[in-house]
Design a protein around this nucleic acid. Structure first.
Lengths: 169, 169
DNA sequence: GCGATCGCTGGGCAAGTTGCACACAGACCC
DNA sequence: GGGTCTGTGTGCAACTTGCCCAGCGATCGC
């Protein structure tokens, strides 16, 4: 577990220019093609890279309104609520959490008016006691992972350099 | 704006098997390669498909703990808070919202203990009045978009069939 | 110390894919 | 009826992929 600097650079490169293949990546990174291929395979079987699925923008799909709903669940109804929310396409993700609510889910809708429909659909369910919704106005930091990748790579590298004083990677 | 059924099938196909190329996709969809190529180009310039960046798992990177923090911001300090949170790698996304808090952000950390460090880093900032954190325990519905894609495609198609009674797509 | 193992390199190969071009057909709009 | 748009089918050169191999340096175990 963990990635080294080459892994980090590879991931950043792939994130910035997903169209480049293994060959071009090896050229940019200044390593042999086989190396890049091996690293990629390892990262994928490690689960660090889950896949290369297309990144879809809900807004462009016609769902520009986004919201978070905190749900309070009736004791023992968790499983049923999950199953229910799983069937609602507008529920993009669902977490169970500590704190005031029991669950937190991200919703999208076609408009503010449509959001009402979605919320009714989500919370108009037996096992849900209470729900509070926060509509997203702006998204100053869109979902990102690169800074974390870079930090993880540097941390790992720092560890190595401390232990072994560098190995040429 | 909006996608038709072929677009929807293409996106679903790409999401399920990202490694297949344009040629293989055209075979699976039963259309000409040029068509798939044209659709893909259109979806990308439309912004429906933002890209094909690698999907990274923070847990596999060594950050298995995930949390949401609701922040209350001192009047007029929004911009400064955003700029600050933007510099924290553990902040994966940040939204400004309506409701009790002013901002909602997703955090990750190396451990529950490490989460304390991250929270201190995030909320130990001048412009933030109050913060409440919810640690994610389970993730019954991981971030997904396919059901929405399918619904968007069907909606569009239903519209079309109503208007024009089908056109062979 | 010495052999085994691992990761990286650089090369080569056949098979497949890409990007691009073209002519053509059907549907739609004015 | 002409113009436009989208999809089809075809062709081509150029490139990339997946796979193989031999060699080499560093690390690890004994």
């Amino acid at each position: 577990m963990g990635i080294d600097r080459l892994d980090g650079r590879l991931i950043v490169l792939l994130a910035r220019e997903p169209r480049i293949g293994v060959l071009e990546a090896s050229r940019r990174l200044g390593v042999a093609r086989g190396t890049v291929q091996a690293r990629l395979n390892r990262l994928q079987s490690n689960g660090v890279i889950r896949g290369f699925g297309p990144d879809i923008d809900p807004a462009a799909l016609g769902y520009p309104v986004s919201a978070f709903a905190t749900l309070e669940i009736k004791q023992g109804q968790g499983a049923r609520v999950r199953a229910h929310l799983d069937t609602v396409p507008e529920v993009l993700e669902l977490h169970t959490t500590t704190g005031h609510g029991d669950m937190l889910c991200r919703l999208v809708a076609r408009s503010n008016a449509d959001l009402q429909r979605v919320i009714d659909l989500v919370v108009g369910f037996d096992g849900i006691v209470r729900a509070s919704t926060a509509i997203v106005m702006e998204n100053p930091v869109p979902l990102r992972i690169l800074p974390l990748v870079e930090q993880a790579a540097e941390d790992r590298d720092r560890q190595w350099t401390t232990e072994r004083r560098g190995d040429g990677l």
